[in-house]
Write a protein that binds this DNA or RNA. Sequence first.
DNA 1: TTTTTTGCAAATACTTTGCATAACG
DNA 2: CGTTATGCAAAGTATTTGCAAAAAA
Lengths: 153, 153
Amino acid sequence: MHTQTSCGVTAEQLENFKQACKQHGLRLTPQRVEIFKTVALSKEHPDAEHVFETVRKTMPNVSLDTVYRTLSSLEDLGLVFRVGFSSKARFDADLDEHYHFVCTQCGEVFDVVPSSGEKLSIPPEVQHLGRVQKVNLQFSGLCRRCQAKQKDL
Amino acid sequence: MHTQTSCGVTAEQLENFKQACKQHGLRLTPQRVEIFKTVALSKEHPDAEHVFETVRKTMPNVSLDTVYRTLSSLEDLGLVFRVGFSSKARFDADLDEHYHFVCTQCGEVFDVVPSSGEKLSIPPEVQHLGRVQKVNLQFSGLCRRCQAKQKDL
DNA sequence: TTTTTTGCAAATACTTTGCATAACG
DNA sequence: CGTTATGCAAAGTATTTGCAAAAAA
């Protein structure tokens, strides 16, 4: 059992958040705290607009762009994750099961074709949630070329 | 080895495409054929703009919105897949490894927490592509509630 | 006091839509 | 010939950016 603050975010989470901000030289503004708390408390994977509406209740002057900026910073610190992948849509006509590796730097998309033993099986608890029509597995990180470029600097 | 047409798309793929169009009552317009061929031939997971520029070379009058509409139809027919997930970004502060099931109808996102045995291991061929920083596994389909609603109609 | 962050407004990026004309079957 | 698809233009949605004022350290 975790110690809970009055708002429901664990003290551990909050401490984590403060530490991470300090480490990266981010100031601890009330907006940041509220936005982080909102995402940490929500169980519904909120979008920016939703976070905005929630934060606005206790902080009527926040602006939507601060929410966007903050979510982005929190993501950079690894405190918040982006569900799914935004940006623009890309298409593929390869009907065989395969996955992707996307470079976070150059944006290149590499195909990953699993060997027969590596193919993903759909866990029973997922099948229980609904009828699965599509599986999307995406790895992301720095590709070899961008890694090399970084070293050159 | 597949039989190749002059453009490099396999005859099989093209036949598949024509059959699917016929089955769904979609007319076989030159735009559709070109757009399909472009995605089928490309190995770079093109976005709409890129498909547009490519098709435009042989068909200077296509419009970007036709490309969007066509990619969407082709996706509905299952002839083309959308890489990653577009639409708006959603956030999550859960740092533990987990996956998501997204309902294509209502948009709800369900968490999938893998049991220890189900945790995804990163295949060696992926590690070879670059430094993996993030793994995103998303299932999509109709959730139970939406399945039930559909039956009621 | 210095630097970061905010709120505002405007801009941008991506995608969708209404409508008249053109084209498929 | 009837219906669907296209191109054009305009609208819509999601997100980002420049800048001056406000706030954190």
